[in-house]
């Protein structure tokens, strides 16, 4: 069989092995509503170790975080019909008694500070205060004071996961960084 000459410096086998251990689903590329629906529906299938509540939680979290990558990633492509699709990485892993869902995308350093602040506020609040924060932010968004509905999405994610938003920012250049959010969902979710 003829080999590809300039074969990418990349072993698919190693990539597979890297993912094989704990990863149930991984996707990298442009995100649109079709990708979201396909992966969203697959979550049901791959998370059959958890209870119904855990499954519905991971679905809800997936929908909010994947939407944020789609809308806010600094890396994007444009379809032939002119739609802008954000690019990013989505990973659903299984570690012991919980699932972890991670999304990551490139962000402009000048844009990311408010998002990080938002995540830090969310992580500092207890459940009651988080609910109050969601009510307040929803009011603000509805009254047109806050166009960025991704904010409520992040509060929702923390409430649904019942765990903090584990954020990481890795600089990739002077202008850009790779931003990721990981959340953990217990397989035996009670709420």
């Amino acid at each position: 069989m003829e080999k590809i000459d300039d074969k990418y410096d990349f072993s698919l086998y190693e990539y597979h092995n890297l993912l094989h251990q704990n990863i149930l689903v991984s996707y990298k590329g442009p995100i649109d509503e079709r990708i979201m629906t396909v992966i969203g529906d697959n979550i049901e299938i791959v998370t059959n170790d958890g209870n119904d509540k855990a499954r519905s939680k991971i679905f809800k979290i997936f929908m909010e975080l994947a939407q944020n990558v789609w809308l806010y990633s600094a890396e994007s492509c444009t379809t032939s019909s002119g739609r802008r699709l954000g690019m990013g990485t989505l990973v659903i892993g299984e570690f012991g008694d919980s699932y972890t869902f991670v999304t990551g995308n490139v962000v402009r350093n000048s844009d990311i500070e408010p998002v990080i602040e938002k995540c830090e506020i969310i992580n500092s609040l207890d459940r009651e205060s988080l609910r109050e924060y969601r009510r307040e932010q929803r009011r603000l968004a509805k009254d047109g004071h806050n166009k960025n509905s991704g904010n409520i999405g992040l509060i929702q994610v923390a409430l649904t996961a019942e765990s903090p938003l584990d954020i990481e920012l890795t600089p990739v250049s002077d202008e850009e960084s790779f931003f990721s959010i990981a959340v953990k969902i217990k397989k035996s979710a009670a709420k």
Partner: peptide, 13 residues
């Protein structure tokens, strides 16, 4: 059975 946060704003409306 499911609504996203964007829909929740319209539900509040």
């Amino acid at each position: 059975s499911y609504f996203n946060t964007s829909s929740s704003k319209c539900l509040v409306d």
